[in-house]
Amino acid sequence: MSLEILAVDDSRTMRDMIRLALEPVGFTVHTADDGVHGTEVLEDIDPDVIITDINMPRMDGFGFIDAVRDGNRHRTTPILVLTTEAAPEMKMRARSAGATGWIVKPFDPTKLVKALQMVAG
C-alpha cells in the first residue's frame, strides 16, 4: 500500500536515504530540513506518517513532535523518531513527547517500511 510520508532530518544524506528506501516501494516522500521547516511543510500536506530526526537546528525533534501534537490537524498522525541511540530513556523521552515509535539509525530499509506500515496500517 502506498503511504505519504514526511521525513524531517537536517542531514541531506539521511533525507536521501529515506527517499531511496521508500520511493521505490511506491511511497510518496516529502522532506523538511528541520522542525520549523517541518511544521511549514505540514501546513500543506496530510502525510500518513511523519519520520523525524531528534538533533536538528532551529527546532529539534522533540519540539517538532510537540508542535505537531499541539495542532489539531495532525494530532493522531503517527510519528516515528529516527535516533542513533537505542537507549531506553531515549525511547521514553520520544514517547512522552508524543512519538508513536522509533527507528534506530542506521535503519534497514525493509524494517523502515515495515515500521511505517505498522503504524499507518
Binding site: R69, T76, T77, P78, I79, R95, G98, A99, T100, G101, K114, Q117, M118, V119, A120, G121
Partner: peptide, 14 residues
C-alpha cells in the same frame, strides 16, 4: 496509546 498516534487496527494488521 492513542495520544502517541498509535492505533489498534494497525497493530492487528501487522
Amino acid at each position: 496509546l492513542f495520544d502517541t498516534g498509535n492505533d489498534v487496527p494497525h497493530i492487528f494488521a501487522a
